[in-house]
């Protein structure tokens, strides 16, 4: 059945937190350099750092590999809180 209502797109609505900006600054890497190495636009790096965009699993692996870290060291996954948990 086709639904023409609200779609849940990749990365829409909920974004993960990450330490990308901190790690990048710590290592003295410019956004442009990181973007060129990962073959993405500089805006994508900016959006990732600001938490506005969730990367695909491929990009997350590329970032982790470039920074020689595990994905979990850069991106934080938080379980979605239920209404009951939030109210307590």
């Amino acid at each position: 059945m086709i639904t023409y209502g609200k779609h849940a797109f990749h990365g829409e609505g909920r974004t993960t937190k990450n330490y990308l900006a901190e790690i990048r600054k710590q290592r003295g890497i410019r956004q442009e350099t990181l973007a060129a190495a990962l073959e993405v636009s500089r805006q994508t790096i900016g959006s990732l750092e600001n938490g506005r965009y969730n990367p695909s699993i491929l990009l997350a692996f590329k970032i982790a590999r470039y920074l020689q870290l595990n994905i979990e060291d850069i991106f934080i996954y938080e379980e979605e809180k239920t209404d009951e948990e939030e109210s307590s």
């Binding site: 797109f9 990749h10 805006q43 994508t44 965009y53």
Partner: peptide, 26 residues
């Protein structure tokens, strides 16, 4: 080439197209 293949740009374009399609149906 990077700008065209950038996954965020592709996602934005696809999302915009999907929104326009939903609107077009109505």
């Amino acid at each position: 080439e990077i700008e065209q293949q950038d996954e965020r740009n592709v996602t934005i374009a696809n999302r915009a197209k999907a929104k326009a399609f939903d609107m077009m149906i109505f």
